[in-house]
Amino acid sequence: MSSGETLPAAQAGTVESMDCLVTIAASSGGRRIEISGSGAARFRSAMENKIIQVLDSLGGPGDLSVTVQDNGALDIVLGARVEAAYLRFREAMLR
């Protein structure tokens, strides 16, 4: 992609209690995962594993940027939000 082009990005989730807002965008140089919010300090490693597991199960490419704004989302909610954001991202890429 040329430097002047807008990179596709997609979001899913909310910042409400027990939820998280996941943003997925194209990136260069491998997967980048950024986590902020209530679970970031204690559960970062488990959350990263969950994100990678979901993306791998969907055949997600290596070059992706994943940003999570967490407000106490359980593992299953994080997984659901990553899946929804990735499927939206993939659709945006096809347009």
């Binding site: 899913a12 909610v77 659901a80 939000r81 929804a84 499927l87």
Partner: peptide
Amino acid sequence: KDSSRILVREVLRHS
């Protein structure tokens, strides 16, 4: 609609 369907599926699977 799409994200809710996924969320409901995951909650049903695990609770």
